[in-house]
Simulated scan of single mutants.
Amino acid sequence: MELVVYLAGQIHDDWRGELRQKARKRGLPIIFKGPQEDHDRSDDIGEKIKGEQPNPVYRDQTASEFNNLRTRVWMEKADVVIALFGEKYRQWNTAMDAAIALQSGKPLILVRPEGLVHPLKELAQRAQVVVETPDQALDALAYIFE
């Protein structure tokens, strides 16, 4: 059995790449999917497909259409969603993805540092597992295969 795991969350470091590498080293049968990690590609995709937009607002809206399509397709195929919240940036997309996962009935592993316990308390109560690090999330996935 392989698990498809959608990696929602902050884009300001390489936590996804590190998690993929650690899962491979452990021999875990996991396929990781997630948002477009190339920020420029994500921002430019609307104009690449639909052509130049009249202003930055339309450019963002057009890109969002295709990024939302990508997210929805991969989240629907996911067996589990990991949503990682970091302390440094506002995490609107992470919150939206976590809400979609819960609404869709997908098991959710919430990764949040101690400093975000209070602001994420309601979301934490709905997640199947709440951890503080991506390594702990990977341990939770590994436990599924025992």
Rank of each mutant, 00 (worst) to 15 (best):
L102S: 07
Y143M: 05
D44T: 08
A142I: 08
E87I: 00
D60C: 04
L3M: 08
N67I: 05
E37M: 05
E2W: 10
L138D: 04
I45D: 09
L102W: 07
L123I: 02
I30V: 11
R16I: 04
K77G: 05
A137K: 05
W74A: 04
K121C: 10
D43C: 10
R112M: 00
F66A: 06
L102F: 09
Q128F: 09
S104L: 12
A101Y: 06
Y6P: 08
K50R: 11
E76F: 02
A137M: 01
R26F: 05
V111N: 01
P56Y: 06
K88F: 00
D135V: 07
A8R: 00
D60Y: 13
G86E: 00
I144L: 11
H118E: 13
R41E: 14
Y89E: 08
L7S: 06
Q61R: 12
K22W: 13
K25M: 09
F85G: 01
Y143T: 12
Q91G: 01
E114D: 14
V111L: 00
I31M: 04
E52T: 10
L19I: 14
V130N: 10
L116W: 01
R126E: 12
W15I: 03
P119Q: 09
Q128P: 01
D14Y: 11
R90Y: 03
Q91M: 06
V4F: 01
K48R: 07
L138G: 08
G51I: 11
W15D: 10
M75P: 00
V4Q: 12
Q128M: 11
V117T: 05
K48V: 08
